[in-house]
Simulated assay, not measured.
Amino acid sequence: MNWNIFKKDTTKSKAPKSKTREWVDAIVFAAVASTLIRGLLFSAYAIPSGSMEGTQLAGDYLFVSKISYGPRMAMTPIAFPFTEPVAYGVKTYWGGLQLPYFRLPGLGTVKKQDIVVFNKPEEADLNLPVDERTTLIKRCQATPGDILTIKNAQVYINGVAAANAPKAQTSYTVITNGTDINPQVLHDFNITIMQQSAANTYEMTIPAEHLATLKSYSNIKSITPAIAPAGVYDPAIFPHSDKFKWNLDNFGPIKLPKKGWTVALNDSTLTLYRKAIEVYENNKVTVNGKDILINGKKADSYTFKMDYYWMMGDNRHDSLDSRFWGYVPEDHIVGKAMITWFSTDSTASLFNKVRWGRVMRPIN
């Protein structure tokens, strides 16, 4: 009698997989593995603009660590992977299913001076899901609870001057004797002409390491920092109210909201924090005479549910950042920029397009 009725029959051999089946299995495995890696560990991003010039260049390709701050779970789970939110005019996601914000534990939290990738808060006005908004890269200047002030282009955190990025850039007013500057000098020194206000007067973004050399040229009469004076109101600057006469170079003080922090509500604080309360934390805010109502109830104060950060580009006069659209909520944070793995220069000739000196370069 055969008592081994449950024993695997080793005499039968499996039919070999077809080439098609092997390819399908390999593709499925690669898709699952890449989705897990991209969703939980690292993603690749490209730098499209010059807001971080000096530190990061347009054409840099980055690895961004999601585990540094904890991987953010998808809030819009039904979407085509590895695509932009809109491709050829067609949405690549379905917004009918939205999950609440949730982040897995990470190695740490966002620190001041970290270079961070995040979704653009300003696009909340476009009614886009958080994780389908444009991704940006900036340097974190202030963390939850900090008081940020900018005086004559210098950032202060809690009254102490913040460290400037090693290759931070700003703009200067350049006056010549009427003789044009050699275009090759502008290219070699990575100088950008932002505007020309007179025949011999320019505003230029000049890397710090080339400033002294440019000043020594015989056709340069003067180079002075281009700084907007204190008290001059710029309506493009957050919070877009003449209650606060702030501009790019003279701004604040302003306190960054922190989870659990309770702020007294009045005309001034509502101007500063209304968008966070109403848009990012999903409350209905109305003003009835002198009364402030949140979700239909009179409120004298509000307690924040999330942490908020202040992000600015290292190229200070060519960066749309928190000075324009305010705080970055924690649910917009994607990850920490770690490595420039590749870099190309779109303005260079064919054989000089790759910036080999930037390949596999750590970011700081």
Rank of each mutant, 00 (worst) to 15 (best):
L148C: 02
G159P: 05
T55G: 14
V28L: 13
P253C: 07
P229S: 04
V160S: 11
E132K: 15
N190S: 11
P329K: 03
K215N: 03
N2W: 09
P235C: 05
S322T: 04
K151D: 01
G260N: 06
V185K: 11
F63K: 09
P329S: 09
V155R: 01
G96W: 05
A337R: 07
L36D: 13
S68G: 08
A228R: 15
V334N: 04
A87C: 05
Y172F: 09
L320V: 09
G296C: 00
D60C: 10
I254A: 10
I137V: 15
I67W: 15
L270I: 03
I206Q: 03
N283P: 04
H240E: 10
K120Y: 12
V232F: 15
A208E: 15
D180S: 13
L99Q: 14
M1A: 15
R21M: 14
Q98I: 01
T83P: 07
P253K: 11
T35V: 10
R21A: 14
P362K: 05
P207H: 02
T134D: 12
G313S: 05
T347P: 08
V110Q: 12
T55F: 10
S34E: 07
V24T: 14
R274D: 07
G159Q: 05
N282F: 13
Y308R: 05
I292V: 01
D300L: 04
P121S: 08
N295M: 04
L214Y: 00
A230E: 07
K91C: 06
A276W: 04
G326W: 11
T340Y: 09
V334P: 03
L270S: 02
S222K: 04
I191F: 07
Q196G: 09
V279S: 12
V64N: 02
Y202E: 07
M75V: 04
G95V: 05
M1I: 14
P77E: 11
V287W: 01
P239G: 03
S349F: 12
G39L: 03
N364S: 10
E53V: 00
K297I: 01
A124D: 15
K284F: 11
M75I: 06
S65T: 05
P105E: 01
Y61H: 14
T35Q: 08
Y45A: 10
A58L: 03
P225R: 04
F244N: 03
R38K: 13
T303H: 02
N250W: 08
N250V: 03
Q141V: 11
T55H: 13
D242L: 01
G108F: 03
S34D: 05
L211P: 02
Y233E: 10
W23C: 12
Y302S: 00
A79E: 12
P16H: 11
V64K: 01
D321F: 00
P329R: 09
F189C: 13
V263G: 02
G54W: 02
T76R: 13
I193D: 13
D331R: 10
F342Y: 15
F351S: 13
P235F: 10
Q169P: 08
K111A: 11
N283A: 07
V285K: 01
Q56H: 06
T344Q: 09
Y69M: 10
R316Y: 04
L136P: 07
K215M: 01
K245L: 07
F42I: 12
A163V: 05
M338V: 11
E84W: 08
M360D: 06
T92W: 10
P16K: 14
